[in-house]
Design a binder for these strands. Structure first.
Lengths: 153, 153
DNA sequence: CTAGATTGGTTTGTGCCACGAACTAACTAG
DNA sequence: CTAGTTAGTTCGTGGCACAAACCAATCTAG
């Protein structure tokens, strides 16, 4: 039972957490990336390029990503009024409900894992994690956006 | 600055941590999966099937994975003495040094992020994370193996 | 001992993800 | 009006992931 280092611990935990997400997403035939796409769009209607930045992907990758999601009726491309080259991507109703469902199940998973900790510990963990993320966001001048989005440097 | 929920926080943190890993791995033209492969092999010499279980992949996926790594001289297939159907996979010297390098850089990254927390907080976080992982491992009867390996249920 | 079942691995086909390079269309500066 | 930039798509390549089909070795019933 070699007590694992904090680095190992965080790596482990990260795999565990994202593994749950992946599993829940797979239940609805979503990949992690598709899920992140839906997550990002919950409160945004970005252009393709903004989306690429948000997801940390190449714009060409986003083309295909949105293609597939659009084919499934989860998102729509809306021609931008301001710039005729540009396209806005938004959730459809179907996409929105799907995103909500996956998020809920994932949340339940994580909550279940966290239930292994006594109340007090869970609270501490929560505030430490928040603190760390806030500090990191500040240190990198990055604005903290919500669920399912990685902080890219 | 909406204080994010613990679930969101953990998701964020996980993306952040694995994002670093991915970046460091990419510096050496490794994917996350390749890196996990090397990580798993640091102290094991499993069969293909064991490897599949360890990585949570299908055996057919592992075939290709090992193919590519072998082509790059990072791992070797060793015919099993015990069972002539079976193949053992092990690191080459090159694979071992590469794994060490990536691990070191990744560790530095995470350490740097953790440096944003005051000493006491970092220590608390460390023990909370360990505690959570241990509890989870116990709850699932899984033995806790080391770095870069997800706990599969 | 042998016929049938099981097991370990590879191969093949399909689809997603990711990138860079090349390209079109639209916007912007001068 | 022209030159250069920007937004997005397309194409080609390669890794990742799975299921299904397959082969060879091993096990097991009878």
């Amino acid at each position: 039972m070699a007590s694992l280092s904090i680095v190992d611990g965080l790596a482990q935990l990260s795999f565990l957490v994202l593994g749950r997400l992946e599993r829940r997403a797979a239940e609805h035939d979503l990949s992690i990336v598709q899920t992140r796409l839906l997550g990002v769009l919950r409160d945004r209607r970005p252009t393709m390029l903004e989306l690429a930045k948000l997801l940390g992907l190449d714009k060409s990758s986003v083309s295909g990503l949105v293609d597939r999601a659009e084919r499934r009726g989860l998102v729509t491309r809306i021609p931008s009024a301001a710039d005729r080259r540009s396209v806005l991507v938004g959730l459809t109703e179907q996409g929105r409900t799907l995103a909500a469902e996956v998020a809920a199940r994932f949340e339940a998973d994580v909550t279940e894992i966290l239930a292994l900790l006594p109340d007090a510990d869970r609270k501490s963990l929560s505030s430490l994690v928040s603190g760390l993320l806030v500090a990191h966001a500040r240190a990198n001048g990055v604005d903290l956006f919500d669920t399912l989005v990685p902080s890219h440097e």
